[in-house]
């Protein structure tokens, strides 16, 4: 609690008496978030359906707030007019890499070289997902047959699984990445703790499947039948029979969501029990107009 309170204080997000002089407020927030401290974010488009980017945009005002106060979108083929991959603090990579497409392979390597933090945005970048089912032969590049999650080509720092990833998780990671890079010691500590399980997912591997629940949860004696896995499955491949998950394995698109969502894959006791204050911090960071001048 102490940690969180001090973060709120420093960020100026604690409950304020109603009559704070406007001038003072603007001045104070300027001090906290000078525009020069914005981080550089890019969206790198590999073989994905743009659903991940749409999810990012679905943060609506939250996205505008992020771009106003915390981050510059320095690269995004769909939204920003920049051709070559620039230096970035955070690269959000959507889609898997077609290894028969030289340009994609170069781009992903370039992304790694130019970015402090590489985030696999969505299940195709993290696990291959639906692109695992490619057999090639399609117009107009029939030879584009083999697609790999980005972690099979470069080192990846953070996973945001999901097909598509939820806007809220993208938002949380963006805010935490900002705190990690630009925050004070306390903020860095919180952001580090928050991001750790998503970094661990990135270290864990590049395949996702219902089987992960069998191998690493049920077979390990950890499943308690909460049903979260079924809720997270984008294709409703999971049902609970007598309180335990059963996967329609032919339906499974290999997105890896169920495992990441399961409370028994990871449950960080130093973060999740603080849900009330962390949610307040994130909501405070994105509150429309609060630090706008």
């Amino acid at each position: 609690m102490g940690l969180l309170n001090s973060i709120k204080k420093i960020m100026g997000w604690e409950a304020k008496p109603a009559q704070v002089a406007m001038e003072k407020k603007v001045e104070a927030t300027k001090e906290i978030k000078p525009v020069t401290n914005k981080i550089k974010i890019g969206h790198v488009h590999m073989s994905g359906c743009t659903g991940c980017l749409v999810s990012l945009a679905d943060n609506n005002l939250g996205l505008i707030k992020i771009l106003d106060d915390y981050a510059d979108l320095v690269y995004c083929l769909t939204l920003a007019d920049v051709r070559n991959i620039p230096e970035m603090d955070v690269a959000l990579v959507e889609g898997s890499v077609c290894i028969q497409d030289k340009e994609s392979v170069e781009d992903i390597k370039e992304t790694r070289k130019k970015s402090k933090i590489v985030v696999a945005l969505g299940s195709c970048a993290s696990y291959g997902n639906i692109t695992r089912f490619s057999r090639g032969g399609q117009h107009n590049q029939p030879q584009h047959e083999s697609f790999l999650p980005i972690g099979d080509i470069i080192d990846v720092d953070v996973y945001i699984p999901g097909c598509p990833p939820s806007p809220e998780l993208i938002r949380n990671v963006a805010v935490m990445a900002y705190l990690l890079l630009e925050g004070n010691e306390d903020q860095k500590a919180l952001a580090g703790k928050y991001l750790k399980p998503l970094m661990d997912l990135a270290k864990r591997g590049t395949t996702g499947c219902f089987c992960d629940l069998m191998n690493d949860v049920i077979n390990q004696g950890l499943c308690m039948g909460c049903g979260t896995c079924a809720a997270s499955c984008p294709v409703r491949a999971i049902t609970l029979e007598f309180g335990k998950p059963q996967g329609e394995r032919d339906l499974c698109i290999k997105c890896g969501s169920c495992y990441g969502a399961c409370p028994r894959s990871f449950f960080n006791l130093d973060v999740i029990p603080e849900f009330e204050s962390i949610s307040e911090i994130i909501a405070g960071a994105l509150k429309e107009g609060e630090s706008d001048d």
Binding site: P165, S166, A231, S257, A261, P263, I272, S279
Partner: peptide
Amino acid sequence: CQMQAVRKAQLYPINMRDVPD
């Protein structure tokens, strides 16, 4: 454990669009 699951879904909404709020 189900309360834990709800809070994890709120803070780490993996394929849990709309759930956090």
